[in-house]
């Protein structure tokens, strides 16, 4: 039984997902002025976040395109950046707690 894996959430995978998402959002921001570029995102289904994030890159529907065919909304990306950081910080905090538990177990509760 691995202590780090007993909790219902697989935090490591969640953090991987958030890093991947961060990359996609960065890519959208970098291409905010590229003609024809379409906003991309990783499948945001709650379950998909914890399952394999592999190949779940999708184009985001419902965004209005500019004349050059680009549909990056800087406001949307800014919101996602902020959200991502908060989620990542939360996950890191939880992970820290878990690591602390393991440390405590290693030192027989003397830490």
């Amino acid at each position: 039984m691995h202590l780090a894996h007993t909790a219902p959430l697989d935090l490591g995978r969640f953090m991987s997902y958030l890093s991947a998402r961060q990359e996609v959002v960065s890519s959208n921001i970098a291409n905010a002025d590229t003609p024809g570029y379409k906003t991309q995102d990783i499948e945001t289904e709650f379950s998909a976040a914890f399952a394999e994030a592999r190949d779940a890159i999708v184009e985001v529907p419902g965004l209005s395109s500019k004349n050059d065919g680009n549909n990056v909304s800087i406001d949307r990306e800014a919101r996602l950046l902020a959200e991502n950081t908060v989620r990542f910080n939360l996950a890191a905090q939880l992970m820290r707690g878990r690591i602390k538990d393991i440390r405590s177990a290693i030192s027989e509760g003397h830490s």
């Binding site: 958030l18 961060q22 970098a30 950046l81 991502n84 990542f88 890191a92 820290r96």
Partner: peptide, 22 residues
């Protein structure tokens, strides 16, 4: 556009710093 990219870098840096806090 430049500022938006800088903001993205600083959040990524923040996330890396959090990971190192572990």
């Amino acid at each position: 556009g430049y500022q938006a990219n800088v903001a993205a870098i600083s959040t990524a840096k923040d996330m890396i710093a959090r990971s190192m806090d572990l």
